[in-house]
Design a protein around this nucleic acid. Structure first.
Length: 595
RNA sequence: CUGCCCGUAGCUCAAUUGGAUAGAGCACCAGCCUUCUAAGCUGGGGGUUACAGGUUCGAUCCCUGUCGGGCAGGCCA
C-alpha cells in the first residue's frame, strides 16, 4: 500500500484546476461576495444553490435570504433585495429577482448556459471529475462472499453497487482501495472440503450418505473429478472409517457434519489441507473470473486466515483484554460490548477453543484502521444490519474512531420472469447464479439494472425488460442515445475533436439551452452520488439526459445547411455523447458506437 | 415481544437531504415516419405522499402514536 501523499494530492488537484470553473461555482462566488457585504458576520454560512423545479423560477435559486432572516432578525424579502443589489450585473446573469418568501431566482445569460459545452469537450473523459475527496484514502469492501460456490444474483447487486460506488469515489478525488474479504478460515470452508471429499469417495464406489446440509451443487462433483484425475485413489478411505462415531444425521445434522469433518481431518492428515486448499483455490478462481467478466475488479483480496497466521486475532483480543473488555463465562470468552451500547455481550472464543466469526471480524477492522484509511466503507447485505452495532462497539473498544466506518446496506434483488417471481432458494443449491443472469440479460443490462434503485431498497429485477431491445429498457435507451450521436457524427464525417473550440452562439433554442443545462448538472449528480453513496442517481440522470437528447433529435435536425448552426449543434451532441460515456463508465456499462 | 429499514399515480420507482404548483417510465387514450437510426418523439387523463397529531415562514423528508410489509435478534456465517 503506497503511503498517502500530499504530493499525489497536489498533482491530482493541479489536474482539476485546469478546466474553467463551472457556472454554478462562479455563481456561488458571486453570492459569497454579496453575502460578505450584506452580512459580514455570516460570511461563512453554507450557500445552497439549487435547480428549481419550475422554469419560471430561474436556472438556479437560493434560499440564502431565508437562512439569514433568523440571525439578522430581518424580513427575508428585504435581505434578498439587498443581496440582489450587491450581486450587481454580471455577464453570467440575465436577471436576478426576489420571489416568494425570499428566494433569489437567478436567470443565466445564454452565454453562461452554453459554455458548458466547451467545458465538456475540453475536459473529455474527465468532465464531471472533481476533487471532493482531496486524495483521502477510502476503502470499499464488497462482495466478500464465502468461496464455497458460485456467486448468486444477490452477490451480483453488491458487486455492481460496490464497483460503481468505488468508481464514483475515485472520480471525486478519493484514493480508493477495492477489497474482497475471503472467508477462508471458517467452518463453511471445512464443509466444502468435506463435501468435495465425499463426492470423490463416491467416484471410487465408497458410499457415505451425502448430508443434506453439505454443499449439493454440481460444481462440487466437478472438483471431485479434478482431484481423482490428478491423484487417482490416493485419498480413498473405507466408509466405516469415515462414519466412525458420527452421530445420526436426522437428529443432530450439525453435529453429524462436524464429526464427519473431524474424521476427514484424522484420516487424511496432511492430505486434508490439499483438498481444502484445492476447493478454496477453485472456487475463488471461479468467483474472480465471474467478477472480472462482470467488469468488477479488486485491488486487494484479503484472507481471513492471514489474520490468524499473523496472530492479529490474538493480538486484537489481548488489546481488548488489557482494556478490561473481555471476560470468561461458561468456558467461553466474551466481549463486553454492552459497555459500548450493544444489546448484549458477544462471544469471541467458543468453549471448544474456536474463535467466532466476530473475533476475526474485529481483527480485520483493526487491520483496516492500521492501514490508515480515512474512511472505511463496508458493503453488506441488508440481512446483516443487526451486525453493525457490535462491530462499531468493538472498534470503539479498541480506541478507534468509529465514525470512519460506514456500512452501506444492499437489499435483496428479486428476479421476475413473465411477471412471476423466480425462486431463489439457497438450500437446495438451485439458486440463480450471477453467471446465469449475465448470460441471460448481458453484463450491461445487469450492471445498470442493479444500480437503478437506491441500494437500501428492494429491487424488482425484470428479466424480460432487461433483455428487451426497446425503448422500455432503460439501458438500451441510454446506449441508443450514445449510438445515435455517433451515427450523426459519422454522417457529418468531420473530426469530433475539432469541435471543442466551436462558437456556440447559434445555440439559442429552448431545447438546446435545456440540454446545455442538463449537461452542466452532471457535475452535481456525480457529487451527490459520491456524498450519499448513491450511484442510482447517475443511472437516473443518464435516463433523463438520453430522453432530453432523443426529444431534441426528433424535433430539430442537426446537420443543417447553415454552417454556424450545424457546427454548434454538432458540438452540443458531441457533448451529450461525452457525458453519456462518462456516466456509463461510472456504472461499468459500455457505450456502443452503433446498435 | 424487542430493534432496524420501508410505505409516494393501477405497476416499477424518483424527488437536489427542510423549499415554491410532488416528477419519470410502464400500462391506458389520441397523434407523428419522403427528413441525421420509429431501437425514436408529441399531447392527455391519473395523487389527501398509509393514517392521526406535532415542530416552523415552509414537511414526502424531522418528532410521537396507529396500521401494514420486510429483515434481524446463536458459543451460525
Amino acid at each position: 500500500m503506497p503511503p498517502a501523499s500530499a504530493a499525489a494530492s497536489a498533482i491530482i488537484g493541479a489536474l482539476f484546476s485546469a478546466p474553467p470553473r463551472m457556472v454554478k461555482t462562479q455563481l456561488l462566488g458571486l453570492l459569497r461576495a454579496a453575502l460578505a457585504s450584506v452580512a459580514p458576520e455570516q460570511r461563512d454560512l453554507e450557500i445552497v444553490l439549487e435547480r428549481p423545479r419550475q422554469a419560471a423560477h430561474g436556472d438556479y435559486a437560493t434560499n440564502l435570504a431565508l437562512q439569514l432572516a433568523h440571525p439578522l432578525r430581518a424580513n427575508p424579502r428585504e435581505i434578498a433585495r439587498h443581496l440582489v443589489r450587491e450581486l450587481g450585473s454580471s455577464p453570467l446573469l440575465a436577471k436576478a429577482e426576489v420571489a416568494g418568501a425570499g428566494f433569489i431566482n437567478l436567470f443565466l445569460s445564454p452565454d453562461a448556459t452554453r459554455q458548458v459545452v466547451s467545458q465538456v469537450l475540453e475536459a473529455g473523459r474527465d468532465f464531471g471529475r472533481n476533487n471532493l475527496g482531496a486524495g483521502r484514502k477510502v476503502q470499499v469492501e464488497f462482495v466478500s462472499a464465502n468461496p464455497t460456490g458460485p456467486l448468486h444474483v444477490g452477490h451480483g447487486r453488491g458487486a455492481a453497487l460496490g464497483a460503481s460506488l468505488a468508481q464514483v469515489l475515485a472520480f471525486t478525488g478519493h484514493a480508493v482501495t477495492r477489497e474482497y474479504y475471503i472467508n477462508d478460515a471458517g467452518r463453511q470452508m471445512d464443509i466444502l472440503a468435506l463435501s468435495t471429499w465425499l463426492r470423490y469417495l463416491e467416484l471410487h464406489d465408497v458410499w457415505v450418505p451425502f448430508p443434506s446440509n453439505a454443499y449439493q451443487g454440481g460444481y462440487v462433483i466437478d472438483m471431485a473429478h479434478q482431484i481423482r484425475d490428478a491423484h487417482g485413489p490416493r485419498y480413498v478411505h473405507p466408509a466405516p472409517a469415515v462414519l466412525a462415531g458420527v452421530p445420526d444425521a436426522a437428529t443432530a445434522p450439525e453435529a453429524h457434519l462436524d464429526a464427519l469433518i473431524a474424521n476427514a481431518k484424522d484420516l487424511l492428515g496432511e492430505d486434508y489441507r490439499y483438498i481444502h486448499s484445492h476447493a478454496l483455490t477453485e472456487q475463488l478462481a471461479d468467483c474472480r473470473d465471474d467478477l472480472v467478466e462482470f467488469g468488477v475488479h479488486f485491488d486487494v483480496w484479503f484472507s481471513e486466515r492471514s489474520l490468524f497466521d499473523t496472530a492479529l486475532v490474538q493480538r486484537c483480543l489481548e488489546r481488548l483484554e488489557r482494556a478490561g473488555q473481555l471476560y470468561t463465562q461458561d468456558g467461553a470468552q466474551w466481549f463486553r460490548s454492552t459497555a459500548f451500547g450493544d444489546e448484549k455481550d458477544r462471544v469471541v472464543q467458543r468453549e471448544n477453543g474456536e474463535y467466532t466469526y466476530f473475533a476475526s471480524d474485529i481483527a480485520y477492522h483493526l487491520n483496516k484502521y492500521e492501514r490508515g484509511f480515512d474512511r472505511i466503507i463496508d458493503v453488506w447485505g441488508a440481512d446483516h444490519h443487526g451486525y453493525i452495532p457490535r462491530v462499531k462497539c468493538a472498534v470503539r473498544a479498541l480506541g478507534l474512531d468509529d465514525t470512519k466506518l460506514e456500512v452501506a446496506l444492499v437489499q435483496f434483488a428479486v428476479l421476475y420472469r413473465d411477471g412471476q417471481k423466480t425462486s431463489m432458494s439457497t438450500r437446495a443449491g438451485e439458486y440463480v447464479t450471477l453467471r446465469e443472469l449475465r448470460n441471460e440479460v448481458g453484463n450491461d443490462a445487469a450492471r445498470f439494472f442493479y444500480v437503478l434503485r437506491k441500494s437500501d431498497q428492494h429491487l424488482d429485477f425484470d428479466l424480460d425488460l432487461a433483455k428487451s431491445e426497446s425503448t422500455d429498457n432503460p439501458v438500451y435507451y441510454v446506449q441508443y442515445g450514445h449510438a445515435r450521436v455517433c451515427s450523426v457524427l459519422a454522417q457529418w464525417g468531420g473530426d469530433a475533436r475539432t469541435l471543442a473550440g466551436t462558437d456556440l452562439a447559434a445555440l439559442s433554442g429552448e431545447r438546446e439551452l435545456g440540454l446545455c443545462a442538463r449537461l452542466a448538472d452532471f457535475a452535481d449528480v456525480v457529487e451527490a452520488a459520491a456524498r450519499d453513496y448513491s450511484p442510482h442517481l447517475v443511472a437516473h440522470y443518464l435516463k433523463d439526459l438520453a430522453a432530453e437528447f432523443h426529444s431534441f433529435y426528433n424535433a430539430e435536425r442537426i446537420l443543417v445547411d447553415d454552417p454556424a448552426l450545424r457546427q454548434a449543434r454538432l458540438a452540443l451532441v458531441a457533448g451529450v455523447r461525452q457525458v453519456l460515456r462518462n456516466g456509463l463508465r461510472l456504472l461499468g456499462v459500455s457505450a456502443p458506437e452503433s446498435m
